[in-house]
Amino acid sequence: MATTGADPQRIGRELDGAVVTVDPALPSAVREEVEEIIGRPVGAGAGPRVHVGPGLPRLAAGERLLWMHSTNAGVDALLRAHSPWPPEALLTRTVGRMGERIGQYVLAWALAELQAIPGFLRQQEARTWNRLPTELADGTLAVVFGTGSIGAGIGAALRRCGIRTVGVARTPRPAPGFDSVLALGDPTGPHGPSAELTAALGAARWVVDALPLTPGTADLFGPALFGAMAGATFFNVGRGATVRTEALAEALEQGRVAHAVLDVLPEEPAPPASPAWDLPRTTLTSHSAGPTTAADITADFRTAWQALRAGRLPALTVRTAAGY
């Protein structure tokens, strides 16, 4: 789990003299809470830099970055902008209650579809009264790619409504929120998805992409994975660049994907010319599935600060070589 060169005991010893800064664009509540956590004003000290924010601060000549706590859960853009990452600097991220919130988002859209809410809204606009067919959630199958804290939150939310959950992970092992976990394998390779994953996707009512963007997940959802689906509704609440838009368009046209709900896209904000706007039976929600609050940022920073003071690596440490 450790980031190469980021020694938690060394970092913990240096915290007392570190200069802690907070991005000025963040709410004042974040700065105030960080000052309470560290026991001094932000900006005080003469040692290496600790920074809380969405991006790296400008460092003075000779200044050393000790630790950055990202206010985002996804750090792929940050790592691309600062490649290679300083090997001795620790990077942590903010997750907060994002798994719970994204789980509620996925469940809300799934239940809306099962209860034919879009159809009833159209009927109301047309002043038409017809009973529309609805479905029960109980017993349907969701396949969730990504079994970390966000994937686990999605799985837990769906299971509460009786939806069976299968997780997909690079290294399969039992995970909270899932009835079982399958190996991701190499679905874009010459042999395609494994027989187990192909069978799960073929039986799935819901397929959820909750993956981070790494070299191994870029363009992962293409013809092979979409081709194994048989009318599932596809959610992307991970990263836009994990999905090939043209492959999703083809799967929607063929009916392999019945509907799509996309909270993230390869290019954000999506320009008017983005092909995503033209996808049939698709809803775009403008990266709103898992809002991060000031309390989330400071709670995760506090937990990481306390771990480092105890000489431990924080649970939200980013493995910079892996990208998450």
Rank of each mutant, 00 (worst) to 15 (best):
I37M: 03
I37E: 01
I38H: 00
R40E: 00
P41T: 10
P41L: 03
P41N: 07
V42I: 15
V42D: 06
G43I: 09
G43C: 06
G43P: 08
A44Y: 05
G45I: 06
G45W: 08
G47Q: 11
G47Y: 11
G47M: 09
R49K: 08
V50P: 06
H51M: 12
H51V: 11
V52Q: 07
V52L: 14
G53L: 10
G53S: 13
P54K: 14
P54L: 12
G55C: 08
L56D: 06
L56R: 14
P57K: 08
P57W: 06
L59E: 02
A60F: 00
A60G: 15
A61H: 13
A61S: 15
A61T: 15
G62F: 14
E63P: 00
E63F: 02
R64A: 08
R64N: 00
R64D: 09
R64F: 00
L65V: 06
L65F: 04
M68P: 08
M68L: 15
M68F: 11
M68S: 03
H69Y: 04
H69P: 00
H69K: 07
H69N: 04
N72V: 05
N72C: 12
A73M: 04
G74Y: 08
G74A: 13
V75I: 09
D76Y: 13
D76F: 12
A77Q: 12
L78S: 07
L78Y: 12
L78P: 07
R80Q: 12
R80S: 12
R80G: 00
R80M: 00
H82K: 01
S83W: 07
S83H: 14
P84R: 11
W85I: 06
W85H: 08
W85S: 03
P86H: 12
P87L: 11
P87H: 15
P87E: 15
P87V: 13
A89R: 05
L90T: 05
L91V: 10
T92G: 10
T92P: 13
